[in-house]
């Protein structure tokens, strides 16, 4: 067992975890933050993307013990005072989601893109989202949503 101190969505948390607990399981099973999804569990689909110290990573492929001392933001942490993040709003406006399963990872990844590139073009958005698989939308409305969010952020 390991004790870790982390900040999750702005809250300081101390927890005892098994050495082999992965971050996605820590979030879902221990903190009940089930908005982070497991689509493949081997870092290919991107449904589990969260931010660790401001960078997007795949939470299924990081040990929770390795995240000790970090700040984590999950999809649940984007909404501030009941108001959705501009990226969330843009996904809604442009119908950038259907079944919603890949959506949390997609949104977290897209927000990280805008941190790296404030005004991406279509190609840059599509390239960045290489690590996020969506089976429903054909990606077109996701691209539109990311562009809209870029104009609002």
């Amino acid at each position: 067992m390991k004790k870790i101190n982390v900040e999750v969505n702005g809250k300081k948390i101390t927890k005892e975890i098994s050495d082999h607990t992965v971050l996605s399981s820590f979030l879902r099973d221990i903190l009940n933050l089930t908005g982070t999804h497991i689509g493949c569990d081997t870092s290919q689909c991107g449904a589990c993307v969260v931010h660790v110290d401001g960078k997007s990573i795949k939470s299924c492929t990081a040990f929770a013990a390795d995240i000790d001392g970090s700040k984590i933001t999950t999809i649940e942490g984007l909404t501030k005072n009941g108001k959705m993040h501009p990226m969330q709003e843009a996904f809604k406006k442009h119908h950038g989601l259907q079944c919603g399963f890949c959506t949390p990872g997609m949104v977290m990844s897209a927000i990280d893109l805008l941190k790296n590139n404030k005004n991406p073009n279509d190609r840059e958005i599509r390239d960045w989202l290489e690590g996020n698989i969506c089976r429903c939308t054909g990606y077109q409305n996701i691209v539109a949503a990311v562009k809209e969010a870029a104009s609002k952020m």
Binding site: V49, K55, S56, K58, T61, A62, S109, D112, W128, G131
Partner: peptide
């Protein structure tokens, strides 16, 4: 290499 999340790790 990989995708942005892989590159971040």
């Amino acid at each position: 290499i990989g995708d942005p999340q892989v590159r971040n790790r």
